[in-house]
């Protein structure tokens, strides 16, 4: 008797709860489609073409979206001297650890020196990078003509364009960088295909310590906030 009453009560409660859920689903949480259709949320504003143009600074390797303007190698030497040379050196040789911009062309296998001349595959991306990120201490402070001129000067330092080169949207797209074909953009990994050996995976007698960081002497001390050096690396 008691049990059946209990049973009935639970069943009734279940019905009420289900009913509540159904109601709230309609009234409060309208179901969201698996893939929301275009403009479903209608939040934010639609920018106009002029606004979009202001944001649109990304250049592609084919030179698309390069802006109007131009710059000569000579003009570039002047701007570069004022804006870039303090870090990258007058002739792109690099100051301290700041990146070298010149050298190593054709010698990536032996010298491993990655410069604009030796490594960067696309001239329009030189413009893109200077325009978006340089100078380091004041990015986005150069005019289009100045960026074109610096690009011309750096390409000329690397022997990629002649002294009379004028950089603009058309001429940069036509420059073939020495390492244009040097990249494999299809990730070949995984590069190793091990099996998880659990026992006798190596000959214990053949195991030797080939290097020991406790003997390198270049680990910054890690004893507190003020870390001091044990040494400097040999490069």
């Amino acid at each position: 008797m008691f049990s059946s009453a209990k049973l009935f009560a639970s069943a009734a409660f279940g019905t009420v709860a289900l009913g509540t859920l159904a109601v709230s689903a309609v009234a409060v949480a309208a179901p969201v489609p698996a893939a929301e259709p275009l403009g479903y949320y209608a939040i934010g504003m639609t920018p106009d073409a002029a606004q979009i143009a202001q944001w649109s600074i990304a250049i592609k390797p084919d030179g698309s979206n390069l802006p109007p303007g131009s710059g000569t190698v000579d003009a570039g030497a002047t701007v570069y001297g004022a804006e870039c040379a303090m870090c990258h050196g007058t002739f792109g040789e690099g100051v301290d650890a700041y990146p070298k911009l010149v050298g190593g062309v054709g010698a990536l296998k032996t010298q491993k020196l990655k410069t604009v001349g030796s490594y960067w595959p696309y001239a329009p991306i030189v413009y893109d990078y200077i325009n978006r990120a340089m100078p380091f201490y004041a990015p986005r402070s150069l005019s289009n003509d100045q960026v074109y001129a610096i690009t011309a000067y750096i390409l000329n330092l690397n022997g990629i364009v002649p002294d009379n080169f004028v950089a603009d949207a058309k001429s940069l797209a036509a420059v073939k960088m020495p390492n244009r074909d040097g990249f494999n953009f299809k990730d070949p990994r995984p590069l190793t295909h091990d099996v998880a050996c659990m026992a006798h995976c190596a000959d214990p007698k053949a195991l030797t310590v080939t290097s020991d960081a406790s003997k390198s002497g270049i680990t910054p001390r890690t004893t507190g906030p003020v870390d001091t050096m044990q040494g400097t690396p040999t490069k």
């Binding site: 990536l108 990655k114 604009v116 490594y119």
Partner: peptide, 16 residues
């Protein structure tokens, strides 16, 4: 391209 690519011993680089 210039950064975050790996220059391999054979002189070519891995991107992406």
């Amino acid at each position: 391209t210039a950064s975050y690519t790996e220059l391999l011993p054979n002189g070519t680089a891995l991107g992406f």
